[in-house]
Design a protein around this nucleic acid. Structure first.
Lengths: 343, 343
DNA sequence: CCGATTATCCAAAGCGCTTTGGAAATCTCC
DNA sequence: GGAGATTTCCAAAGCGCTTTGGATAATCGG
């Protein structure tokens, strides 16, 4: 069923039917009701492509998911982020277009997306410290929101980010307050902006207590379980092992916990662990009592907020000033932390 | 830059330019080269919507991701599956359209997808034992491939599935060979087809050795870490605890391991664990030596295969006979299994 | 060198929708 | 009752592409 058929059926012109359906005022209430009723009855929905062609809008938002060619890893937070964003798109009658591309092809993907006009805007994932995609998107004139920030010129584009620096500052402070002095940082890839900020928070906390950060206690890698295990195993085997770990993701922390167990130690008693918890739906941080003491910030919620911000930007008539949203994480105390062992 | 502008620039008609770009034979090689060169130089890419409108195809594949309203969970295998499928779509010049919807709205979503003509086909995720979406899609005339199977009429639609029954039959046999007699099943939701098959394999193995499956040793839930922990904790606290667990996912098994540790036991010595491993990119089963003994089958690969099958079906002129692909998982021996403790 | 192929290109219609610029019908008010 | 305002509807153009049905130019056999 298309517009032509529907209007023939109703004995009205396509114009009137279209206007009735799109709530234009030039049509009487009686006609509008009759048209809408017929549309529902005949299961009529306007063809997306035709509508898009006529309006010049695609009613779709693009997400480009880069596959790291070196690591072949899909970021596990991705599913929950998408779920959050997807809710907003569905509510706003937008589609979500996903492109899974090797990270080296990303630039080309954005160019094609813009040239084809297949999306009205994009969400930028996983910004690097100085991300080339940001100037590219600006050049392409494609509205976008960054999930996270790049190091420079934060004011010149729109973003939604967690206060990573403060989160790790607080987490580290918490460990310091418990008497820990040798605190390890099991960080994400420090080519990523969020990881740099977390390290900055970690180092600031140490320095504020007169402790010089020890490079032997810092790791930076893609945040897998295996990485957490290796990092913790190696550091614990050291002659001067850490008594606490600040870990960038729950998954990595599960590996850290495994290494602690393998070393015959007990988490929360012999070794403390604080983590950043993205509140992934399939990886809840325990039930009533959290397993891990954590700086908690929902990535699902971040997805919603990014999507909302982007749709708002697209709806604006003129390209207005960039929007920013800095989310604060919440520190929850679990059973993975305790006073530093004495002696 | 659009077709009109490009052809004006070249002094050719739109027809010729279009034909040159789409490799029609009615245009000379010299002209074709000239046109393609100009297209590249001017960064011309045909508008998706216009092309779709003219050809009647959308060059997009839909994935409907249901959010369980009861559990609010996104299946963690999803990211890797999508990544696999996405590779194929990108290579075949298809887009991927994602709809994240509450499971109760799924039917409506498929109807709209079909009415709007926004996709040329869909992948059906997580089929239930008797899935209503399959007849719906057939009714809508939308080409589709099921990732998994529904209980009935397997021959009447196309699917890609793992041999779940055999996988759990073998895994359970492996435990039985090690002398285990009280083997627990920590299964996924048994409203899902895959979970039913896994249970069938598990029970068949037990029965073949004259063991009656004990309902007290069987659990069925959404496969989270927390669930694994609760299930194992409860069963281990029983007066007649299991000596081994067959677990439906790695994430759940991580919870099982946690419970084993909490109970003061050691995995692989006191309690054995076999799992189904989907080879998620961010959740590798250890390095050289697998942590868990596992029936392994890559969901990333399954994504690729589903996508390939669907594109092939779409490319077919007439709706041909359904295609099927039954993948066998590989049993890998890790350090989570050992002989049943005696006495 | 001429009619018949063949190679090369083009004008225009059409995909399903929105939207501009009226026209016809109804209403308003003196 | 009729000029003007208002309501209600419509024909047709246009969005950017593909494709049908020619037209024109180049090539060929005899």
């Amino acid at each position: 069923m298309n517009l032509k058929e529907l209007s023939a059926l109703l004995g009205l012109s396509q114009t009137t039917v279209s206007r009735a359906l799109n709530d234009y005022p030039e049509v009487s209430e009686a006609t509008r009701r009759r048209v809408k009723e017929a549309a529902r009855a005949n299961n009529y929905t306007p063809n997306t492509r035709a509508k898009g062609l006529a309006t010049g809008r695609s009613m779709a938002i693009g997400h480009v998911i880069p596959i790291s060619t070196r690591h072949e890893i899909v970021n596990p937070i991705f599913a929950d982020f998408i779920a959050g964003a997807g809710e907003i798109y569905t509510a706003g009658n937008y589609d979500m277009l996903l492109s899974v591309v090797p990270d080296v092809d990303e630039e080309r993907t954005y160019r094609t997306l813009a040239a084809r006009g297949s999306v009205d805007g994009v969400i930028l994932h996983g910004p690097h410290a100085d991300d080339r995609r940001i100037p590219l998107l600006r050049e392409l004139g494609l509205p976008f929101v960054v999930h996270g920030r790049a190091g420079h010129e934060e004011d010149s584009y729109s973003w939604v980010d967690v206060n990573n620096t403060r989160a790790f500052r607080r987490a580290t402070d918490f460990l310091l307050d418990l008497g820990h002095r040798r605190i390890a940082l099991v960080n994400g890839l420090e080519s990523m902006d969020f990881a740099r900020r977390r390290r900055a928070g970690y180092e600031a906390a140490l320095k504020a207590r007169g402790i010089t950060p020890d490079p032997a206690l810092m790791r930076s890698e893609e945040m897998t379980e295996d990485y957490g295990w290796r990092a913790a195993r190696d550091m614990l085997a050291d002659e001067n092992p850490p008594t606490a770990f600040a870990v960038s993701s729950m998954l990595t922390a599960i590996g850290v916990r495994r290494a602690i167990g393998d070393a015959g130690l007990e988490m929360g008693r012999d070794v403390s662990v604080v983590i950043h918890d993205d509140v992934l739906s399939y990886l809840k941080n325990g039930g009533d009592i959290p397993i891990f003491t954590a700086a908690r910030s929902s990535v699902h919620e971040a997805g919603r907020l990014c999507a909302e911000m982007l749709l708002r930007i697209i709806a604006e008539p003129a390209p207005a000033t960039p929007r920013h949203l800095l989310l604060e994480s919440e520190l929850v105390i679990g059973s993975s932390t305790g006073p530093a062992p004495t002696g």
